[in-house]
């Protein structure tokens, strides 16, 4: 019934034609607003070598409101909770309609390189990250190996 807004078509085409290295986002065959996303863990981070699945949904009033993004793959990160919800300002109050799917996913990838335990979503993870960073990083590597490396 409703035609897909031109901006979404444009972003989708560009994601296919000029993919962002380390990120893939493919629209669902049944819903062009729902994207299957895979983000590779950044180099020199405890998530290196992992392939993390996410889901991304563009609400009806996108780009006036932010996409809804969630990790599907379990991940040990102070700003991502056990349901995969992400604490990232640009997905909330710092959203701007000039941001795009690709910039959002790049920001999420950057969040993997730079965990911020002072603004936690997963409190136990953040706590450990603050008091015993090496153990937290060990856990993150272990989770990456266990959940993000078996295809």
């Amino acid at each position: 019934m409703a035609a897909l807004p031109r901006r979404i078509i444009k972003e989708t085409q560009r994601l296919m034609q000029e993919p962002v290295p380390g990120i893939s986002a493919v629209p669902s065959e049944t819903n062009a607003r729902y994207f299957h996303v895979i983000v590779t863990g950044p180099e020199d981070s405890p998530f290196e070598g992992g392939l993390f699945k996410l889901e991304l949904f563009l609400p009806e009033d996108y780009p006036m409101s932010a996409p809804k993004v969630r990790f599907i793959t379990k991940i040990y990160h102070p700003n991502i909770d056990r349901l995969g919800r992400i604490c990232l300002d640009i997905l909330k109050d710092k959203w701007s309609p000039a941001l795009q799917i690709r910039t959002v996913l790049l920001s999420i990838q950057a969040l993997l390189s730079a965990p911020n335990p002072d603004d936690p979503l997963a409190n136990d993870v953040a706590e450990l990250w603050k008091v015993n960073e090496s153990e937290a990083i060990r856990n993150a590597k272990e989770w990456t190996r266990r959940y993000a490396m078996d295809n």
Partner: peptide, 11 residues
């Protein structure tokens, strides 16, 4: 201006 794209609608 006609050649550039708007940052919101990308058109």
């Amino acid at each position: 201006l006609r050649e550039q794209a708007c940052g919101v609608c990308l058109e």
